[in-house]
Amino acid sequence: MLEIKNVTKVFNAGTINEKVALDDVSLTLEEGEFITVIGTNGAGKSTLLNAIAGTWPVDSGEIWIGDTNVTKLPEYKRAKYIGRVFQDPLLGSAADMWIEENLALAKRRGQHRGLKIGITEEERKEYYGLLKEFDLGLEDRLSAKVGLLSGGQRQALTLLMATIQKPKILLLDEHTAALDPKTAAKVLETTKKVVEKNNLTTFMVTHNMKDAIAYGNRLIMMSGGKIILDIKGKEKQNMTVEKLLNRFEKASGEEFTNDAAILG
């Protein structure tokens, strides 16, 4: 479903701030795979996600989604294949627009937008049902401005927006990092439900080792712009934080230096 072939990205090339953010990275995701991505700060996990999303062009390599080579497509064209939830809850939805308007915008992702009415009566009924399933208490507030919602509600709404039209790949960029632990857990559970229900191919960046182990069916760890660990199947199921730290130290020859990732 997703194929990343030898992708390299260097920031500030030729200056003293030069940083090789992605160093010849290759990764293939099968349909329905739910991969969690972990690594220390600056390891390249969010950079890899942005490379897939098309935030900026990569320096070399290719990215394929299904049968489409998206390497040269701008972000808004790739959006046809990609559902996305950002780390910042404010980034995923339009604050001054209504909940139903935001959903209607998402429903038309990748489609031509013309002079047809922006939201139909049937859609309203559909959105009511979908929001009810999400259990956020938002189904009766379809015409409330999104700016009035809490961070957790906005993140869950963004998740619904990202999946309202089944994406070929769902990108989650530390989407619970800005939430309090209780809300974060709820959003993660909702994520799991949505992913399983729709059998979504998912790429979830997280800074939390426990979450990376508890969710998904494959785990990769990044360091220095490379993928240094790739764990799946039985091994992933039997993984613990301790074992993972051990493997990391062996693979990278350094200590894992992100307390939040270990303790959180």
């Binding site: 604050a95 998402a106 002079l115």
Partner: peptide
């Protein structure tokens, strides 16, 4: 209130969201 009109409003609201929803801002 049309599809394109909503897309323009979304662009003014939030560039990142608009692009992620496939809008050519």
């Amino acid at each position: 209130g049309t599809e394109i009109g909503c897309a323009i409003r979304a662009t003014g609201n939030n560039n990142a969201m608009a692009k992620a929803q496939g809008i050519n801002i």
